[in-house]
Amino acid sequence: MSAVEPVDAALLRAMPLPEHREGEDKNRRGRVLVIGGSTEVPGAAYLSGMAALRAGAGKLQIATVRSMAPQLALAMPEARVTGLGETPAGGIDPAEASRLAGRIGGVDAVVLGPGMLDAAAVAALTRDLLADAEGSAGFVLDAEALAGLRDCRPALRRHAGRLVLTPHAGEMAGLLDLPKAAVEADPLGAARQAAALLGAVVVMKGGCSHIVSPQGQAWSCDQGNVGLATSGSGDTLAGIIAALMARGAAPVVATLWGVFLHGEAGNRLAQAQGPIGFLAREIPAELPRIMREVAQGG
Results as ranks from 00 to 15, higher is better:
Met1Glu: 13
Val4Glu: 10
Glu5Tyr: 06
Pro6Gly: 14
Val7Tyr: 01
Ala10Pro: 11
Pro18Lys: 14
Glu22Arg: 15
Glu24Gly: 10
Asp25Lys: 11
Arg28Ser: 15
Arg29Ser: 10
Leu33Ser: 03
Gly36Asn: 01
Gly36Pro: 10
Glu40Ile: 13
Met50Leu: 15
Leu53Tyr: 06
Ala57Cys: 11
Gly58Asn: 08
Thr64Ser: 09
Gln71Ala: 15
Ala73Lys: 13
Ala73Gln: 13
Thr82Phe: 15
Glu86Cys: 07
Pro88Ser: 10
Gly90Ile: 11
Asp93Phe: 00
Ala95Leu: 14
Val107Cys: 09
Asp108Asn: 12
Leu112Met: 08
Pro114Cys: 09
Leu117Lys: 13
Ala121Arg: 03
Leu125Ser: 05
Leu125Lys: 02
Thr126Gln: 07
Ser136Ile: 14
Phe139Ala: 05
Ala143Ser: 09
Ala143Arg: 00
Leu149Asp: 07
Cys152Glu: 04
Cys152Gln: 04
Cys152Gly: 09
Arg158Phe: 10
Ala160Ile: 15
Pro167Asn: 05
His168Asn: 05
Leu175Trp: 10
Asp177Arg: 15
Asp177His: 14
Ala181Glu: 13
Pro187Thr: 11
Leu188Glu: 08
Ala190Ile: 07
Arg192Asn: 02
Gln193Asp: 12
Gln193Leu: 11
Leu198Ile: 07
Val202Cys: 01
Val212Glu: 04
Val212Ser: 03
Ser213His: 10
Gln215Glu: 15
Ser220Gln: 13
Cys221Gly: 01
Gly224Phe: 02
Ser231Phe: 00
Gly234Asn: 02
Leu237Ala: 00
Ile240Met: 10
Ala243Ile: 04
Ala243Val: 02
Met245Thr: 01
Ala246Gly: 01
Gly248Pro: 03
Val252Gly: 07
Val253Ser: 11
Leu256Gly: 01
Val259Thr: 00
Gly263Met: 01
Gln271Met: 13
Gly274Met: 02
Gly274Pro: 02
Glu282Ala: 11
Ile283Lys: 03
Ile283Cys: 08
Ala285Phe: 05
Glu286His: 09
Glu286Trp: 02
Leu287Gln: 02
Pro288Val: 06
Pro288Asn: 06
Arg289His: 12
Arg292Ile: 14
Ala295Thr: 02
Gln296Phe: 01
